[in-house]
């Protein structure tokens, strides 16, 4: 079956990596490279910090929408109608219990797909059929089937508990901290300053541990930041104050839980994108909203 994601990339007529043939002529293109803006004579070194967008990936598949359910049911029915004949002799020995079970289940699936009138009536006596069904049930008991699956939603006290990593299993969750910085109570991602001579991605890992404790297994994705945020200068600040720059890194949590270490962290929460929007300030939200997943 062909993938819905496979797309054909349009090839450029002259790929840039190809060297020309000896007889080809080069068409001169005027260079349109923009000249860099003139730098101010004396600019202060900006104050750099890193923030980590710590993600808990979905732990269960999402529920298909009604349209998707209808689509899948229709396609499954088409497949069933068009499939090649199943080689019974190859997979089952004649007259075994496993074959009987497969036949009973297959008839059930056919009836579900094509309706009760589709199949011919089985050519077996009532007693034989009842005995078959009893034997198959016995087999299922022996094999320990019929265990109940875990529910796809947790009870309300877990779903609503923002500190639990088990809530909202179908969604991506992100860690948000409730911190008091400079006397202001705000929600923000884990954050810390970069020391001199430190790489950004190393600083990100260190800052995460410094604020959230080392009781969790985390992995910082890549060495390059995934986003940047420049907080607005506070009103009344002079021109000489250094610009603040926050680089965002993406991280994954594999195991463990947050245990706030530093005193200025009051609380933490694992939140979906919509829940994060209600807690962040406007500028900050605009900087991170495209990094967060809608699923």
């Amino acid at each position: 079956m062909l993938s819905r994601t496979s797309t054909k990339c349009a090839r450029a007529v002259h790929p840039p990596w190809r060297r020309l043939l000896a007889t080809e002529t080069v068409t001169q293109t005027p260079s349109t490279a923009p000249t860099p803006p003139p730098r101010s004579k004396k600019s202060l070194r900006p104050h750099i910090s890193t923030a980590i967008i710590l993600n808990r990936s979905p732990i269960i598949t999402r529920t298909p929408t009604l349209f998707e359910q209808a689509y899948y049911a229709y396609q499954a029915r088409l497949r069933r109608a068009l499939h090649n004949p199943f080689p019974y002799d190859f997979y089952f020995k004649q007259g075994t219990l496993l074959e009987t079970r497969f036949n009973i289940e297959e008839r059930k699936r056919e009836r579900l797909a094509f309706g009760p009138g589709f199949l011919e009536k089985e050519d077996v006596s009532e007693e034989k059929r009842a005995a078959d069904i009893a034997a198959v049930e016995q087999l299922a008991l022996q094999e320990g089937e019929g265990e109940e699956l875990m529910p796809r939603t947790r009870p309300e006290n877990i779903e609503g508990d923002v500190k639990s990593l088990d809530r909202r299993g179908k969604r991506n969750l992100y860690l948000l901290l409730h911190a008091s910085d400079d006397g202001k109570d705000i929600w923000r991602f884990p954050q810390g300053d970069v020391e001199k001579g430190q790489f950004l991605h190393q600083a990100a890992q260190k800052d995460l541990y410094a604020e959230c404790g080392d009781l969790m297994d985390t992995w910082i994705v890549g060495k390059a930041p995934v986003g940047v945020y420049k907080p607005p200068q506070p009103i009344g600040a002079s021109q000489e104050t250094a610009e603040r720059v926050v680089f965002f890194f993406k991280g994954h949590i594999m195991a463990g839980q947050v245990k706030p270490e530093s005193g200025n962290i009051k609380d933490f929460a694992w939140l979906t994108k919509e829940e994060i929007e209600t807690r962040l300030e406007g500028n900050y939200w605009d900087a991170v909203k495209d990094i967060l997943s809608d699923y």
């Binding site: 079956m1 993938s3 994601t5 689509y71 899948y72 396609q75 499954a76 890549g222 390059a224 993406k250």
Partner: peptide, 26 residues
Amino acid sequence: ITTREFAPCRLEDHSQTTLKDDLMYM
């Protein structure tokens, strides 16, 4: 008559929602 996906695909969802982002960053 052509048939297409007949069930949700867990690994494809994983590659679309999680892997794609991470690989782009890496």
